[in-house]
Protein backbone atom coordinates (compact mmCIF):
# COMPACT_ATOMS: atom_id res chain seq x y z
CA UNK A 1 0.00 0.00 0.00
CA UNK A 2 1.43 3.39 -0.95
CA UNK A 3 1.35 6.33 1.40
CA UNK A 4 -1.33 8.00 -0.71
CA UNK A 5 -3.54 4.92 -0.55
CA UNK A 6 -2.99 4.55 3.16
CA UNK A 7 -3.89 8.17 3.80
CA UNK A 8 -6.92 7.89 1.56
CA UNK A 9 -8.20 5.00 3.63
CA UNK A 10 -7.12 6.42 6.99
CA UNK A 11 -8.70 9.85 6.54
CA UNK A 12 -11.75 8.28 4.92
CA UNK A 13 -12.41 6.32 8.10
CA UNK A 14 -11.42 9.22 10.32
CA UNK A 15 -13.91 11.43 8.52
CA UNK A 16 -16.86 9.22 9.39
CA UNK A 17 -15.72 8.82 12.96
CA UNK A 18 -15.37 12.59 13.21
CA UNK A 19 -18.85 13.18 11.86
CA UNK A 20 -20.27 10.81 14.46
CA UNK A 21 -18.16 12.46 17.15
CA UNK A 22 -19.38 15.97 16.33
CA UNK A 23 -23.00 14.88 16.00
CA UNK A 24 -22.79 13.23 19.42
CA UNK A 25 -21.12 16.09 21.27
CA UNK A 26 -23.56 18.57 19.74
CA UNK A 27 -26.69 16.57 20.34
CA UNK A 28 -26.07 14.54 23.48
CA UNK A 29 -26.10 17.37 26.05
CA UNK A 30 -29.46 18.53 24.71
CA UNK A 31 -30.91 15.04 24.72
CA UNK A 32 -29.65 14.57 28.26
CA UNK A 33 -31.22 17.87 29.31
CA UNK A 34 -34.54 16.91 27.73
CA UNK A 35 -34.54 13.40 29.22
CA UNK A 36 -33.64 14.53 32.73
CA UNK A 37 -36.24 17.29 32.67
CA UNK A 38 -38.99 14.64 32.88
CA UNK A 39 -37.50 12.54 35.66
CA UNK A 40 -38.12 12.78 39.39
CA UNK A 41 -34.82 13.48 41.13
CA UNK A 42 -35.10 10.35 43.34
CA UNK A 43 -35.00 8.12 40.27
CA UNK A 44 -31.88 9.79 39.06
CA UNK A 45 -30.12 9.53 42.41
CA UNK A 46 -31.01 5.85 42.59
CA UNK A 47 -29.48 4.99 39.24
CA UNK A 48 -27.65 7.84 37.45
CA UNK A 49 -26.88 5.58 34.50
CA UNK A 50 -30.57 5.23 33.66
CA UNK A 51 -31.15 8.77 32.50
CA UNK A 52 -33.98 8.27 30.04
CA UNK A 53 -37.49 8.72 31.43
CA UNK A 54 -40.40 6.30 31.30
CA UNK A 55 -43.50 7.04 29.27
CA UNK A 56 -45.54 7.85 32.38
CA UNK A 57 -42.94 10.33 33.48
CA UNK A 58 -43.03 12.07 30.11
CA UNK A 59 -46.80 12.30 30.02
CA UNK A 60 -46.92 13.16 33.74
CA UNK A 61 -45.12 16.44 33.09
CA UNK A 62 -44.49 16.82 36.85
CA UNK A 63 -41.33 18.95 36.81
CA UNK A 64 -42.70 21.27 34.18
CA UNK A 65 -45.88 21.83 36.14
CA UNK A 66 -43.90 22.69 39.24
CA UNK A 67 -41.73 25.13 37.32
CA UNK A 68 -44.61 26.84 35.55
CA UNK A 69 -46.94 27.09 38.56
CA UNK A 70 -47.21 30.55 40.16
CA UNK A 71 -45.15 31.18 43.31
CA UNK A 72 -48.20 31.46 45.59
CA UNK A 73 -49.14 27.93 44.56
CA UNK A 74 -45.73 26.60 45.43
CA UNK A 75 -44.26 26.78 41.93
CA UNK A 76 -41.56 28.95 40.42
CA UNK A 77 -43.71 31.35 38.40
CA UNK A 78 -42.18 30.65 35.03
CA UNK A 79 -45.28 31.83 33.17
CA UNK A 80 -44.48 35.38 34.27
CA UNK A 81 -40.87 35.02 33.16
CA UNK A 82 -41.91 33.67 29.78
CA UNK A 83 -44.18 36.68 29.40
CA UNK A 84 -41.44 39.13 30.42
CA UNK A 85 -38.88 37.56 28.12
CA UNK A 86 -41.33 37.63 25.22
CA UNK A 87 -42.21 41.28 25.79
CA UNK A 88 -38.57 42.29 26.06
CA UNK A 89 -37.38 40.24 23.08
CA UNK A 90 -40.20 41.26 20.73
CA UNK A 91 -39.94 44.95 21.66
CA UNK A 92 -36.19 44.82 21.11
CA UNK A 93 -36.66 43.28 17.67
CA UNK A 94 -39.19 45.92 16.60
CA UNK A 95 -37.15 48.86 17.86
CA UNK A 96 -33.81 47.59 16.59
CA UNK A 97 -35.20 46.87 13.13
CA UNK A 98 -36.93 50.25 12.92
CA UNK A 99 -33.73 52.11 13.73
CA UNK A 100 -31.30 49.64 12.17
CA UNK A 101 -32.83 49.20 8.71
CA UNK A 102 -32.78 52.93 7.99
CA UNK A 103 -29.28 53.35 9.37
CA UNK A 104 -27.93 50.36 7.44
CA UNK A 105 -29.51 51.60 4.24
CA UNK A 106 -27.97 54.99 4.78
CA UNK A 107 -24.48 53.57 5.30
CA UNK A 108 -24.83 51.18 2.37
CA UNK A 109 -26.33 53.47 -0.21
CA UNK A 110 -26.46 57.16 0.54
CA UNK A 111 -23.50 59.49 0.21
CA UNK A 112 -23.16 61.74 3.19
CA UNK A 113 -20.43 63.34 5.18
CA UNK A 114 -19.13 61.05 7.93
CA UNK A 115 -20.46 57.85 6.40
CA UNK A 116 -17.10 56.13 6.65
CA UNK A 117 -16.66 57.19 10.27
CA UNK A 118 -20.06 55.85 11.25
CA UNK A 119 -19.31 52.59 9.47
CA UNK A 120 -16.05 52.02 11.33
CA UNK A 121 -17.50 53.29 14.60
CA UNK A 122 -20.21 50.65 14.44
CA UNK A 123 -17.66 47.85 14.11
CA UNK A 124 -15.67 49.22 17.04
CA UNK A 125 -18.77 49.41 19.22
CA UNK A 126 -19.61 45.85 18.20
CA UNK A 127 -16.26 44.60 19.47
CA UNK A 128 -16.25 46.57 22.68
CA UNK A 129 -16.49 44.94 26.12
CA UNK A 130 -20.10 44.95 27.32
CA UNK A 131 -19.09 44.95 30.97
CA UNK A 132 -17.54 48.41 30.77
CA UNK A 133 -20.73 49.95 29.47
CA UNK A 134 -22.82 48.02 31.95
CA UNK A 135 -21.44 49.76 35.05
CA UNK A 136 -22.19 53.38 34.04
CA UNK A 137 -25.53 52.32 32.54
CA UNK A 138 -26.40 50.79 35.88
CA UNK A 139 -25.61 54.08 37.61
CA UNK A 140 -27.35 56.13 34.93
CA UNK A 141 -30.55 54.07 34.91
CA UNK A 142 -30.64 53.96 38.69
CA UNK A 143 -30.56 57.74 38.80
CA UNK A 144 -33.19 58.03 36.08
CA UNK A 145 -35.38 55.57 37.98
CA UNK A 146 -35.77 53.15 35.06
CA UNK A 147 -33.21 50.58 36.16
CA UNK A 148 -35.60 48.04 37.54
CA UNK A 149 -38.04 48.10 34.66
CA UNK A 150 -38.44 46.20 31.43
CA UNK A 151 -38.03 49.52 29.56
CA UNK A 152 -34.48 49.74 30.85
CA UNK A 153 -33.71 46.27 29.53
CA UNK A 154 -35.25 46.96 26.12
CA UNK A 155 -33.24 50.17 25.77
CA UNK A 156 -30.01 48.40 26.65
CA UNK A 157 -30.73 45.52 24.28
CA UNK A 158 -31.51 47.99 21.53
CA UNK A 159 -28.10 49.58 21.98
CA UNK A 160 -26.29 46.25 22.10
CA UNK A 161 -27.99 44.72 19.05
CA UNK A 162 -27.99 47.80 16.83
CA UNK A 163 -24.36 47.50 15.63
CA UNK A 164 -24.81 43.83 14.61
CA UNK A 165 -28.03 44.70 12.83
CA UNK A 166 -26.43 47.55 10.92
CA UNK A 167 -23.37 45.53 10.06
CA UNK A 168 -25.31 42.56 8.69
CA UNK A 169 -27.95 44.56 6.84
CA UNK A 170 -25.41 46.91 5.32
CA UNK A 171 -23.68 43.97 3.68
CA UNK A 172 -26.97 42.72 2.31
CA UNK A 173 -28.14 46.10 1.02
CA UNK A 174 -24.85 46.52 -0.80
CA UNK A 175 -25.40 43.23 -2.58
CA UNK A 176 -28.64 44.48 -4.13
CA UNK A 177 -27.88 45.94 -7.59
CA UNK A 178 -27.95 49.74 -7.54
CA UNK A 179 -29.48 49.75 -11.02
CA UNK A 180 -32.72 48.35 -9.61
CA UNK A 181 -33.11 51.29 -7.27
CA UNK A 182 -32.05 53.78 -9.91
CA UNK A 183 -34.62 52.41 -12.32
CA UNK A 184 -37.32 52.84 -9.70
CA UNK A 185 -36.20 56.41 -9.09
CA UNK A 186 -36.32 57.18 -12.78
CA UNK A 187 -39.85 55.82 -12.73
CA UNK A 188 -40.69 58.48 -10.19
CA UNK A 189 -40.35 56.86 -6.80
CA UNK A 190 -38.96 58.97 -3.97
CA UNK A 191 -35.89 57.84 -2.01
CA UNK A 192 -38.17 56.68 0.77
CA UNK A 193 -40.45 54.98 -1.71
CA UNK A 194 -37.45 53.08 -3.05
CA UNK A 195 -36.61 51.77 0.42
CA UNK A 196 -40.18 50.73 1.05
CA UNK A 197 -41.09 49.27 -2.33
CA UNK A 198 -37.76 47.95 -3.70
CA UNK A 199 -35.07 47.48 -1.08
CA UNK A 200 -37.25 46.29 1.75
CA UNK A 201 -38.97 43.44 -0.15
CA UNK A 202 -35.68 42.36 -1.74
CA UNK A 203 -33.95 42.28 1.63
CA UNK A 204 -36.83 40.51 3.38
CA UNK A 205 -34.92 37.24 3.97
CA UNK A 206 -31.95 39.11 5.43
CA UNK A 207 -34.22 41.22 7.59
CA UNK A 208 -35.95 38.08 8.84
CA UNK A 209 -32.59 36.54 9.71
CA UNK A 210 -31.47 39.64 11.56
CA UNK A 211 -34.78 39.80 13.40
CA UNK A 212 -34.25 36.23 14.57
CA UNK A 213 -30.75 37.01 15.74
CA UNK A 214 -31.84 40.04 17.68
CA UNK A 215 -34.61 37.98 19.22
CA UNK A 216 -32.13 35.30 20.25
CA UNK A 217 -29.72 37.80 21.76
CA UNK A 218 -32.44 39.52 23.78
CA UNK A 219 -34.03 36.22 24.81
CA UNK A 220 -30.73 34.70 26.00
CA UNK A 221 -29.24 37.79 27.64
CA UNK A 222 -28.13 37.34 31.23
CA UNK A 223 -25.68 40.00 32.50
CA UNK A 224 -27.88 43.08 32.11
CA UNK A 225 -30.91 41.25 33.44
CA UNK A 226 -28.86 40.25 36.47
CA UNK A 227 -27.62 43.78 37.04
CA UNK A 228 -30.88 45.59 36.39
CA UNK A 229 -33.92 43.64 37.51
CA UNK A 230 -32.63 41.05 39.98
CA UNK A 231 -34.32 42.80 42.90
CA UNK A 232 -37.79 42.68 41.36
CA UNK A 233 -38.96 39.14 40.90
CA UNK A 234 -42.03 40.09 38.90
CA UNK A 235 -39.73 41.59 36.25
CA UNK A 236 -37.39 38.64 35.88
CA UNK A 237 -36.68 37.34 32.42
CA UNK A 238 -36.36 33.63 31.75
CA UNK A 239 -32.60 33.58 32.18
CA UNK A 240 -32.93 34.96 35.70
CA UNK A 241 -35.74 32.51 36.35
CA UNK A 242 -33.61 29.57 35.28
CA UNK A 243 -30.69 30.90 37.30
CA UNK A 244 -32.77 30.92 40.50
CA UNK A 245 -33.39 27.18 40.04
CA UNK A 246 -29.66 26.57 40.36
CA UNK A 247 -29.57 26.12 44.14
CA UNK A 248 -29.11 23.21 46.50
CA UNK A 249 -32.80 23.20 47.42
CA UNK A 250 -34.20 22.80 43.93
CA UNK A 251 -33.91 19.37 42.29
CA UNK A 252 -31.61 19.41 39.28
CA UNK A 253 -34.29 17.83 37.12
CA UNK A 254 -36.37 21.00 37.60
CA UNK A 255 -33.34 23.04 36.60
CA UNK A 256 -33.27 20.97 33.42
CA UNK A 257 -37.00 21.61 32.85
CA UNK A 258 -36.34 25.35 33.15
CA UNK A 259 -33.42 25.03 30.73
CA UNK A 260 -35.63 23.22 28.22
CA UNK A 261 -38.25 25.97 28.50
CA UNK A 262 -35.74 28.71 27.71
CA UNK A 263 -34.09 26.70 24.91
CA UNK A 264 -37.16 25.42 23.10
CA UNK A 265 -38.27 28.62 21.31
CA UNK A 266 -34.71 29.32 20.24
CA UNK A 267 -34.17 25.85 18.79
CA UNK A 268 -37.52 25.89 16.99
CA UNK A 269 -36.82 29.33 15.52
CA UNK A 270 -33.34 28.28 14.53
CA UNK A 271 -34.49 25.24 12.64
CA UNK A 272 -37.31 27.15 11.00
CA UNK A 273 -34.78 29.55 9.53
CA UNK A 274 -31.51 27.67 9.60
CA UNK A 275 -30.43 28.52 6.08
CA UNK A 276 -30.93 32.26 6.44
CA UNK A 277 -29.19 32.21 9.75
CA UNK A 278 -26.06 30.37 8.71
CA UNK A 279 -25.68 32.64 5.71
CA UNK A 280 -26.21 35.68 7.88
CA UNK A 281 -23.74 34.40 10.43
CA UNK A 282 -20.83 34.13 8.06
CA UNK A 283 -21.79 37.42 6.44
CA UNK A 284 -21.86 39.40 9.64
CA UNK A 285 -20.04 37.38 12.22
CA UNK A 286 -22.33 37.39 15.19
CA UNK A 287 -20.97 38.04 18.62
CA UNK A 288 -21.11 35.23 21.07
Amino acid sequence: MTRAEFEERFFGTLKWMSIVFFAVIALFPLLYMLALSFKPIQDLLLDPGKWWPTLEQITGFETYRAVLRPVDQGGFGFVTFIRNSSIVAVSTVILTLAVGILAAYSVARVNFFGRQTVSIGMILVYLFPVVIVAIPLFVMFSRMGIRDSLYGLVIVYLASTLPVTMYMLRGYFQSIPVSLEEAAMVDGLSRFGVIRKITFPLAAPAIAAVALYVFMIAWNEFLYALLFVLEKRELWTLSLGVNQLNTQEVPKTMLMAGSVIISLPIIVLFFAAERFLTEGLTAGGVKG
Binding site: F22, A23, I25, A26, L27, P29, L30, Y32, M33, M216, W219, N220, F222, S239, V242, N243, N246, L255, M256, S259, V260, I262, S263, I266, I267, F270, E274, T278, G288
Partner: peptide, 16 residues
Amino acid sequence: LVLFPYVVPVIAAAFV
Protein backbone atom coordinates in the same frame (compact mmCIF):
# COMPACT_ATOMS: atom_id res chain seq x y z
CA LEU B 1 -27.01 19.66 14.26
CA VAL B 2 -23.44 20.78 14.80
CA LEU B 3 -24.62 24.35 15.34
CA PHE B 4 -26.62 23.37 18.43
CA PRO B 5 -24.02 24.22 21.08
CA TYR B 6 -23.72 27.74 19.72
CA VAL B 7 -27.45 28.34 19.43
CA VAL B 8 -28.67 27.05 22.78
CA PRO B 9 -29.01 29.79 25.42
CA VAL B 10 -25.80 29.96 27.41
CA ILE B 11 -27.63 29.48 30.68
CA ALA B 12 -29.12 26.17 29.54
CA ALA B 13 -25.79 24.99 28.12
CA ALA B 14 -23.91 25.85 31.31
CA PHE B 15 -26.44 24.13 33.55
CA VAL B 16 -26.66 20.94 31.53
